[in-house]
Nucleic acid binder design. Structure first.
Lengths: 143, 143
DNA sequence: GTTACATGTAATCATCATAGTTACAGCATC
DNA sequence: GATGCTGTAACTATGATGATTACATGTAAC
């Protein structure tokens, strides 16, 4: 199992819109950098738009960020592209046997632990903004 | 996306083996509590056995824990049933365009962040043992 | 040793998410 | 109106999951 690359592609898209501020960031251009299909890019951009992370106008080439770089966390992107639903990173088997003490209790016992683990992961994503990503990228390329 | 319920079922199996110490915990019995197929249970048990978490003998009904309850963390179970591979909770798109500065740097920039987030989640699992789960369960059922 | 029953495992199947792709309607700009 | 972009629907291939059947192998009781 792996969390969909939509998330990574979403970050890629937003980062490129920022870096390419002086140019026109069309879905075609983005597809060239991500190395995939423009239609797939537009699908993900639709999600980013719905989450108010970017601004796009039908018929008009190019996308712009809807917020400042440091106001967009990776968690925002993660939520926007809905790679993982709330409290559902881990799945628990349905209908355990209620006649068994373990079967009866297992869901209620495990769920809070799973939610705790998921939250810990998401906290890290909340602490990183696109500004950090762009900075890291600049540092890496300068070395 | 969701992490396979194999993980939750694995915890269920181990917990029931403990709680049912006085009885015989066969794959048939487990299947009844989990509410699924004995063959599926045996597949997961094979993984738990391979990870040295349980002891089972071919032809002999019943499984026993191979370690003490407090020596088995949920992370051990998680690893045993291989629901998520090391450093691969998040997937990153392949072959971004190296001619694009963002395409060239995106993987190296994002990967450490993803690994960090995954580690945070796994740390929580490392901190919880089956002893905790059994205790929680006892507390819940007493209230 | 044969019967009964358990584990181990291969093979098959339905279902679902992902990623890729084509096609086309709707809209803006020239 | 011609061009080119966005927005989507539709379809496909692929792979993981969970369920299930079937059977080989092994143990123990009789």
């Amino acid at each position: 199992m792996s969390i969909s690359s939509r998330f990574a592609v979403g970050i890629h898209i937003l980062t490129l819109i920022e870096v390419n501020q002086d140019g026109v960031t069309s879905s075609n251009f983005l597809a060239g950098s991500v190395n995939t299909n423009p239609a797939l890019i537009r699908k993900i951009m639709a999600m980013l738009k719905k989450a108010d992370l970017i601004e796009v106008t039908p018929g008009v080439a190019g996308a712009k960020l809807a917020k400042n770089l440091n106001e967009i966390s990776l968690y925002d992107v993660y939520r926007a592209v809905s790679v993982v639903e709330e409290n559902e990173l881990f799945s628990i088997h349905d209908n355990p046997n209620p006649a068994c003490p373990v079967g009866q209790q297992i869901q209620a016992t495990i769920e809070p632990i799973f939610i705790h683990a998921q939250s810990a992961m998401e906290s890290v994503l909340k602490q990183v903004t696109l500004a950090d990503v762009v900075n890291d990228m600049a540092n890496n390329s300068s070395t």
